[in-house]
């Protein structure tokens, strides 16, 4: 069984080597002539004003939050889906309760306007 996963390690090495190799080749070939103006950050040619690490609105966090909750749900739903056609209809009911409780959360967020971008 582990042999099946060993090829993932090989994949990881190759997937890392492809971009690193490309970047290294380019690093050898390309010119290096930095100067202060060139190395400034690019904001449409205008001099930058203020700090780049600005504060974002809380809306981003809410989306990530709902995502994490539903992501966790997959940890339960995927085994259930695999087992379903050998389980019978009671599994569907048990599953519906689980999903309904989570949907209540989604509906709450929806009603409260947490899903609006604005």
């Amino acid at each position: 069984m582990l042999a099946n996963y060993a090829i993932l390690a090989v994949f990881m090495v190759v997937a890392g080597l492809v971009p690193i190799g490309a970047l290294a080749t380019a690093w050898v070939i390309r010119p290096h002539k930095p100067n202060p103006v060139k190395s400034e950050i690019y904001e449409c040619g205008i001099e930058t004003v203020g700090e780049a690490w600005v504060q974002f609105k809380v809306q981003y966090y809410i989306y990530a939050l709902v995502f994490v909750i539903f992501d966790v749900e997959t940890a339960f739903l995927y085994p259930w889906a695999v087992a379903y056609n050998r389980l019978g209809v009671f599994a569907l009911f048990e599953m519906s309760i689980f999903v309904a409780i989570l949907l209540a959360g989604l509906l709450y967020a929806w009603r409260k306007g947490a899903l609006e971008w604005v």
């Binding site: 085994p79 889906a81 695999v82 050998r86 389980l87």
Partner: peptide, 10 residues
């Protein structure tokens, strides 16, 4: 294993 987990949850 995954099937057993799914059945276990049910």
């Amino acid at each position: 294993n995954i099937f057993l987990l799914g059945r276990g949850f049910m």
